[in-house]
């Protein structure tokens, strides 16, 4: 195997490890840190099921963002939806047709719309980038990392589109490379500039994910203002460290 292939194999194992380990660490941290007080943003659901529905509406439709700002919502939603479609479309590189998950990849929606997901993704990203540059309030709060993050994902989308519309990448070789990584049986990476850039950018994305604002993905599920049930009067809510204070609050 060439040095290049070796480098890519190592890169992906390192990136994958950082991504998974970082995310697991972060999620455990969120799960272990108590929320000592009831702070749901009201009106909030009074049942667990209600909370699950609330979170589902946030995650699927970006409900609060919709109320907040239609432009950010439309760009953000298009981008995330395209990302989801692209993800499913890419699954075919990691699945074999006899896998039980194959229908996820091989269905009407993914096959017909998935092809264009790269374009809509770019569109959404450009919209968000434009707002960062042209809306004075958003420009004020943007750090270099915020622009770079958008550029990074744009780069991924653009090179991805390039591989299917400009150069015709050797899909079979790519799939072998991907499966090789998954089954710890490394195969050479296709020697194609666009694909190589695309893959490198994806690896960078994996690496920065757990140390950047991309943590909003797990964060949304742990946000106490969104995931708490409104039942403060009915049920006493007590975090472990607060329960310890209870014993010092006097004998009443």
């Amino acid at each position: 195997m060439s040095t290049l292939s070796l480098a890519y194999v190592v890169l992906f194992y390192v990136a994958g490890f950082i991504f998974l380990a970082g995310l697991v660490l972060r999620i455990t941290k969120y799960a272990r840190t108590p929320a000592p007080l009831k702070i749901p943003t009201m009106p909030a659901p009074t049942t667990r099921t209600g909370v699950v529905m609330r979170l589902a509406r946030e995650v699927v439709f970006f409900q609060s963002l919709f109320r907040s700002n239609k432009w950010i919502w439309i760009f953000g939603w298009i981008f995330h939806l395209s990302l989801l479609l692209a993800f499913f479309r890419h699954l075919r590189y990691a699945l074999s047709p006899d896998s039980i998950l194959w229908p996820l990849v091989n269905n009407e929606i993914v096959l017909s719309f998935g092809k264009y997901a790269g374009f809509t993704m770019l569109l959404g990203l450009l919209g968000l980038f434009g707002r960062r540059i042209f809306v004075d309030r958003v420009r004020y709060i943007s750090q270099p990392s915020d622009y770079l993050m958008l550029l990074l994902i744009m780069g991924i989308a653009a090179t991805g589109l390039g591989t299917s519309y400009l150069s015709h990448t050797d899909i079979v070789a790519l799939k072998q490379f991907a499966l090789g990584l998954l089954y710890f049986d490394p195969r050479p990476v296709p020697n194609d500039a666009l694909i190589l850039i695309h893959l490198a950018l994806v690896a960078i994305l994996l690496i920065v994910f757990p140390i950047s604002k991309l943590l909003h993905a797990p964060g949304v599920f742990f946000s106490p203002t969104r995931n708490q049930v409104d039942n403060a009067r009915e049920k006493r809510h007590l975090a472990p460290w607060a329960a310890e204070l209870d014993s010092t609050r006097g004998n009443r």
Binding site: T33, R137, I141, D146
Partner: peptide
């Protein structure tokens, strides 16, 4: 406080600087 208040920790990590709150 980061260890005692999950909200504090999650809020500090999660903001994507989307700007939706800027005019609220």
């Amino acid at each position: 406080m980061l260890k005692k208040y999950r909200g504090f920790q999650v809020f500090l990590d999660s903001c994507v600087k989307c700007g939706a709150c800027t005019d609220k």
